[in-house]
Amino acid sequence: MKVCVKLFGTLPAYYPGCYPDMGLDVEIPAKTSVAELVDLVRIPPEQVAIVAINGMLAKGNQLVPEGAEVKLFQPLNGG
């Protein structure tokens, strides 16, 4: 099944030419979790801290539904 993965911060650097609002169309097996999806797009897991699926904050073990828009964000500091 297909999902759309959007990368923010400096994460697009893993996909040259990719901008945050473009998104990557990714083919994933059914019952793929958030953590497995991060693995599939070959971004080091320590580089991803916050994940949102269809606008809602997601946990690592949550399954990614078909057609989902998945946003990946880096660890944050500051304020």
């Binding site: 923010f8 400096t10 945050p20 946003k71 660890p75 944050l76 500091n77």
Partner: peptide
């Protein structure tokens, strides 16, 4: 990564999307 690369590129404004998400 954050203080060495993310902040110089975006500043604290990098928080906008994830906090909204």
């Amino acid at each position: 990564e954050f203080s060495g690369q993310v902040l110089p590129e975006f500043g604290t404004a990098v928080l906008v999307e994830p906090i909204n998400a």
